[in-house]
Design a protein around this nucleic acid. Structure first.
Length: 353
DNA sequence: CCCGTGACGGTTGAA
DNA sequence: TATTCAACCGTCACG
C-alpha cells in the first residue's frame, strides 16, 4: 500500500492500479468523444489505455454517467431483518415449509421482489443459522438490532446500499442528501443495480454540489482515509472515489483546483453536469502533474465540487500546464517507440483543440 | 490501425 | 480488530 505512486502505462500516462481514473480525465474522455474525436485519439491524447477509454465511453453511452462504479463494500443484503422476520414467521407457521416455498411466499407477499428475493440456498441458510436455533424471541437479532426505517420497507436495494450505517460521515451525508435533494435514484442508482441513469447525471451534479458544500466537517472524517491518497503523491489523483456515486465525491471539498477546463468550450456545458467530479487533482504536484498532457492541464485545475455551478467561470487564468506542454518528465516505458506517438499526439491535440 | 473483450493484478469497504 | 469476499478499477494483449 505504500507509495503506490502512480504507475505509468504504455502511453506514458499515469494511473494508480486498482483505482479509478480521476473524474476530470473521465470527463475529458467523454468530452473529446462528444467533439467527435475518435477513441483511439482520445486514448493517445490523454494517455489512457484504449480499453479504458472504450469502457468509459461505453458506460457513458449506456448510463449517462462518467463516474466509476461503486467500489468495495458488499451488495445490499437481501436477507434483511425484515425478510428474515418473514421467513421466520413462515417457518413458524408451517414448520414443514420448503425453502422454495418460502421464497415464493416472499414474492407473493411482496416482501421481496424478484430482484432481491433471497435464493433458496440463502433461505435454507437462514433457516439453519438464524431460525433453526431460534427459541422464542421473535425478534432478537434483527428486530432490535437493526430495524432501520427502511429495513422495514419492502427493501430498497438502493437506499440500502447507500446506507452504510457505519460510516457515519458518508452515511449521514448521504442520508441527508438522500432524504432531500437526492432524487433517490441518482446517487443510488449507480450502486448496485448499477444503473446510472442518464437523467441522473444532471441531478448528480447538484447533489454533489450540495453535499460538497454541506459536508464541511464530516468531510474531515474521511480525510483520514483519504490521507493515503493525498499523501501519496499520486498527484493528479484525488482520493475521491464514488462509492455510492456521490458520497465520497462530495467528500473532499478541501481540494480545490482553480482552473477551467482547459480547452473545452461548449461541450463542457453539458458534461460537467454529469462529471461533477470533485476529483481533485493532486495538491502538490509542482511542475508536472501525474497526468501530463492535455489532461493534465485539465486536471490540475478544476474545482468542481463545491462550486461546480461556477465551473465555467472558475476560469482560473490558465493556471498550470496547458495544452501545448506535454511535459514528458515522466518515465516512459518505451521511450523510443513512444516518441512517435507523442508526436502524433501533439498533432492530434493541436488539431482538435 | 481500430476497437471490443477478457485476464490480470490491484483497491476498497461491508460483513 | 483483522479477515474475507465480492464488487470495481485500468492496463495489457489478443483477435
Amino acid at each position: 500500500m505504500d507509495q503506490t505512486y502512480g504507475e505509468v502505462n504504455q502511453l506514458g500516462g499515469v494511473f494508480v492500479n486498482g483505482r479509478p481514473l480521476p473524474n476530470a480525465i473521465r470527463l475529458r474522455i467523454v468530452e473529446l468523444a462528444q467533439l467527435g474525436i475518435r477513441p483511439c485519439d482520445i486514448s493517445r491524447q490523454l494517455r489512457v489505455s484504449h480499453g479504458c477509454v472504450s469502457k468509459i465511453l461505453a458506460r457513458y453511452n449506456e448510463t449517462g454517467s462518467i463516474l466509476p462504479g461503486a467500489i468495495g463494500g458488499s451488495k445490499p443484503r437481501v436477507t434483511t431483518p425484515t425478510v428474515v422476520k418473514y421467513i421466520r414467521e413462515y417457518k413458524q407457521g408451517d414448520p414443514g415449509i420448503f425453502a422454495w416455498e418460502i421464497r415464493d411466499r416472499l414474492l407473493a407477499d411482496a416482501v421481496c421482489d424478484k430482484y432481491n428475493v433471497p435464493s433458496v440456498s440463502s433461505i435454507s441458510r437462514i433457516l439453519r443459522n438464524k431460525i433453526g436455533n431460534l427459541s422464542s424471541t421473535s425478534g432478537h437479532y434483527e428486530a432490535h438490532k437493526q430495524l432501520t426505517p427502511q429495513a422495514a420497507l419492502p427493501y430498497n436495494p438502493l437506499y440500502q446500499y447507500s446506507y452504510p450505517g457505519h460510516m457515519s460521515p458518508a452515511a449521514t451525508k448521504v442520508g441527508s442528501s438522500a432524504g432531500v435533494p437526492v432524487p433517490g435514484h441518482v446517487g443510488i442508482h449507480r450502486t448496485w443495480p448499477s444503473a446510472h441513469s442518464v437523467t441522473n447525471i444532471l441531478g448528480l451534479r447538484s447533489i454533489v454540489e450540495q453535499t460538497a458544500v454541506h459536508g464541511g466537517t464530516e468531510t474531515s472524517v474521511y480525510q483520514t482515509k483519504m490521507e493515503d491518497w493525498n499523501n501519496v503523491n499520486r498527484a493528479a489523483f484525488s482520493s475521491t472515489q464514488s462509492v455510492n456515486g456521490i458520497e465520497k465525491q462530495a467528500i473532499d471539498p478541501d481540494l480545490k483546483y482553480p482552473q477551467p477546463p482547459s480547452g473545452l468550450p461548449a461541450v463542457s456545458s453539458f458534461v460537467p453536469a454529469c462529471a461533477v467530479g470533485p476529483y481533485p487533482s493532486s495538491n502538490q504536484v509542482p511542475g508536472y502533474g501525474v497526468y501530463s498532457g492535455p489532461g493534465a492541464g485539465y486536471m490540475s485545475g478544476h474545482h468542481w465540487q463545491s462550486q461546480s455551478s461556477g465551473l465555467s467561470q472558475s476560469a482560473g487564468p490558465g493556471i498550470t500546464v496547458h495544452g501545448g506542454d506535454i511535459h514528458a518528465p515522466m518515465p516512459f516505458k518505451h521511450l523510443s517507440a513512444r516518441e512517435e506517438t507523442h508526436q502524433s499526439i501533439h498533432t492530434v491535440r493541436r488539431g482538435s483543440l
